[in-house]
């Protein structure tokens, strides 16, 4: 089974994320950058499938130069090879542009599964996997908390608002995974060393056959007009329970007219 996993580099979850005033895009310079947590689950699931039935895992990332670190991280977990789409013209791409770039780069590659995380922790759109499925005309098996492969048939449990759906499709298919699906491994020392020697293909827009007029900030399908930072929440009152803690909260609720 040939699997491509899409991983994104994002600001560390604990970092204070900000937009940069110059062009209203995410300020990536001032924060630590890491692999999107949800994408580690995608890498793990790909590795588990390949360990069970053979095949190879390629990680794809679109992002600035140091997104190479994110690809290395996935390689150190055990993926076999990387593809890094890097070009200054991609800066500021929104979801339509990103999905276009991903779909164009991967359209002619040979894969059975294209696995995504269910959401990037910075954009929090959860739209790119479905948009790539749409662009490639592939079945959409998203929000999976379980993936089963049976020959050319893929079955997932799709997490829903009311429980889950069992969904089935034939390969090639687009899958996105939620964090309930597995526990991502930590790279071993051996894995980290081995990752340094694994091949990473570096592609520019031209290499990937991407139309420069359809990506980047100026060509995105939507624009941020302005932004403002919300003042932090004012510190509240914290009391120690001396046997009246419940009554204290009831008094507070009454003072706020909740009861």
């Amino acid at each position: 089974m040939k699997i491509v996993v899409c991983v994104k580099q994002v600001p560390d979850s604990w970092a204070d994320k900000k937009l940069s005033p110059s062009d209203n895009t995410l300020d990536r310079a001032s924060v630590d950058r890491v692999i999107n947590e949800l994408d580690e689950y995608a890498v793990e699931e790909a590795l588990k499938i390949v360990e069970a039935q053979g095949g190879e895992v390629t990680v794809f990332s679109m992002g600035p130069d140091d997104a190479a670190d994110t690809i290395r991280k996935a390689l150190s977990m055990g993926a076999d090879a990387g593809i890094h789409l890097v070009d200054d013209a991609l800066h500021g791409s929104d979801a339509p542009a990103t999905s276009y770039a991903i779909a164009t780069t991967l359209a002619d590659r040979d894969f059975d599964l294209l696995i995504f995380g269910s959401e990037s922790t910075d954009a929090r759109c959860s739209v790119v996997p479905a948009m790539v499925a749409e662009r490639l005309g592939l079945p959409q098996l998203t929000y999976a908390n379980k993936v089963e492969i049976d020959g050319a048939t893929v079955r997932i449990q799709r997490q829903t608002d009311y429980g889950y759906d069992e969904v089935e499709a034939s390969t090639p298919a687009v899958v996105s995974v939620v964090e309930k699906i597995n526990e991502p491994r930590y790279p071993s020392f051996k894995g980290i060393m081995a990752a340094k020697k694994k091949p990473v293909e570096k592609l520019s827009l031209v290499d990937a056959g991407i139309d420069a007029a359809r990506v980047g900030l100026a060509n995105s399908w939507s624009q941020v007009a302005d932004f403002s930072e919300r003042p932090p929440r004012a510190a509240g009152t914290v009391v120690k329970d001396e046997g009246e803690g419940g009554v204290n909260i009831a008094d507070f609720l009454a003072s706020q007219k909740f009861i």
Binding site: S220, Q223, S228, E229, R230
Partner: peptide, 13 residues
């Protein structure tokens, strides 16, 4: 960003 920033956006296409 979890509510820390308020953004105004428009679709241009």
């Amino acid at each position: 960003f979890g509510g820390a920033t308020v953004v105004h956006s428009r679709v241009s296409h």
